[in-house]
Simulated scan of single mutants.
Amino acid sequence: MKNEEIKAVSNLPAPKRYEYFIKKVADFEEVWGLFEDGWAISEDENGSPLFPFWPKKEFANLCAIHEWNGYRPKKIDLEEFIEEWLPGMDADGIRPSIFWNNTDSAVLETHTLKLDLEEELNNY
């Protein structure tokens, strides 16, 4: 990816970054998280756990700073993400945090993310 594209997409509002995430994840059939002896986790303003995900390695890598310094982007197969990760997160009460850009992200329920991904995949 070109630096200009990375910067332009990272600066989009969270809802637009979410749309970008859905399209790119469906295109490439992969989701990215940050990993170092365990997956990077954050929390919302109420202290509820959030699991951050990105559409491309380059975006995840930009967030490997501060408390995630030393973490590295790690790929998750989209089918595994939909079939295993999302139900597991739902059972554990962890919501997805989509496309954190070191400022904000789109936070939603796992079932909404699953429906949006499946709807986009139906376009292929």
Rank of each mutant, 00 (worst) to 15 (best):
D90E: 10
F81A: 10
E58R: 00
K57W: 02
L113C: 06
D37I: 06
P15R: 14
M89W: 01
C63W: 00
F28E: 13
K7M: 05
N101A: 10
I41T: 04
F59D: 05
W39S: 12
L115W: 01
I65P: 01
N101I: 08
F59R: 00
E79P: 09
L113S: 04
W68Q: 02
K2P: 03
I98W: 02
P49W: 14
K7F: 01
Y20Q: 11
N101S: 14
F51L: 13
E43Q: 12
P49H: 04
D92N: 15
E36P: 06
K75P: 01
S10G: 14
P15Q: 12
W54N: 06
D37S: 14
I98Q: 04
D37P: 15
M89D: 06
P13R: 06
L86P: 03
F35W: 10
E58L: 07
L115E: 12
K2I: 02
D44I: 10
W100D: 09
P52T: 00
D77P: 11
I98D: 03
Y124A: 15
Y18V: 10
K24T: 06
N69A: 13
S10W: 01
K74A: 05
E83W: 03
K7W: 00
L113V: 06
K56P: 08
L117K: 09
Y18E: 08
A64F: 05
W100Y: 11
T103Y: 02
R72E: 02
E45L: 06
E45H: 09
L50K: 05
W39T: 05
P52F: 03
R95C: 14
E79A: 14
S48Q: 13
S97P: 14
W85H: 13
G88P: 12
P52V: 05
E36Q: 15
V9L: 04
P73C: 00
A60T: 03
N122C: 07
E120M: 07
Y124K: 08
K114C: 09
V31P: 08
E80V: 09
N122L: 09
Y18K: 15
L117G: 06
A106L: 11
G93N: 05
I82N: 12
F35Y: 09
A64W: 02
I22Y: 08
E29W: 08
E43C: 12
G88W: 11
P13V: 07
K7S: 07
S10K: 05
E30N: 14
I82T: 04
G93P: 10
P73R: 00
E43S: 14
F21W: 03
N101H: 13
N61E: 13
E4S: 09
Y20I: 05
L34C: 06
Y18M: 12
D92S: 07
E120W: 03
G88F: 08
L78K: 08
E109W: 07
S48R: 08
I65W: 00
K2E: 07
E19I: 00
I76V: 12
K2F: 06
D77E: 06
P87C: 12
Y71H: 03
W39L: 10
T112N: 11
E36S: 10
H66T: 10
D92M: 12
K114W: 03
E84I: 11
D104R: 15
